[in-house]
Simulated assay, not measured.
Amino acid sequence: MGWKKPRTSPPPTEPWYARLATSAGRPAVLGATLIMSMPGEYHVAKFAGWSDPWAYGMPFSLSAYAGIAAVVAATRPKGARGRASAVIGAGLAIVLALAAQVVAHLVQTGHMDHNQAWLIAVTSMVPPAVLAHLLHLAATPVTKAAPAEAQLPAAVPPVTVERAEEQLVPPMPEQAPALPPAEHQEQEQERPALEEQRPKRPAIRYSDPRCAILRPLYDAGFRPTTGEMREALEAQRITPPSASTLRGVLRAEIEKHEPALAQLPARPSPLHRAG
Rank of each mutant, 00 (worst) to 15 (best):
I120T: 09
W50D: 07
A139L: 15
P147C: 07
A104N: 05
E165L: 11
S61R: 05
P127R: 07
A154N: 12
H105P: 01
E162V: 11
M112L: 15
V122N: 02
A154I: 06
A164V: 05
I94H: 05
R76P: 08
A132F: 10
L131K: 03
A139V: 12
H114F: 11
W50G: 00
A64T: 14
Q116P: 00
V72E: 14
T109F: 10
A150H: 08
P158E: 00
S85F: 01
A64F: 13
K78S: 09
A150D: 12
K144D: 05
A84D: 13
A48Y: 06
Q116Y: 04
M125P: 03
L119M: 15
K78Q: 13
A117D: 08
T123G: 04
D52I: 03
F47Q: 00
H111G: 14
L134N: 08
A164Y: 10
T75Y: 02
P153D: 10
L134V: 01
Q101S: 14
Q108C: 00
P158Q: 12
G49D: 06
R163H: 14
A84Q: 12
A86C: 03
L131C: 06
I68A: 13
A97Y: 00
V95G: 07
A132E: 01
H43K: 12
L135P: 03
A99K: 06
L96E: 13
G110Q: 06
Q108G: 02
I94F: 08
V161M: 09
A66F: 05
L106K: 04
L96M: 10
A69F: 02
A86K: 04
L96F: 01
S51Y: 03
I68K: 13
A129C: 08
V71D: 10
T109W: 11
A121Y: 11
M112F: 15
V102E: 10
V159E: 10
Q108R: 07
W50N: 09
K46T: 13
P153K: 05
P157V: 05
E41T: 07
Q108P: 03
L131D: 02
A146F: 06
T160D: 14
S124V: 01
A100D: 05
A90F: 04
S61V: 15
Y56E: 10
T123P: 03
V130P: 02
L62S: 08
K46H: 08
T143K: 12
P77K: 06
Y42T: 15
Y56A: 15
A69G: 01
A145F: 08
S61Y: 02
Y42C: 07
V103K: 01
A117M: 06
A93H: 01
A90K: 03
H43Y: 10
H43C: 09
S85T: 11
G82A: 03
Q101P: 02
T140K: 02
S63R: 06
P141T: 07
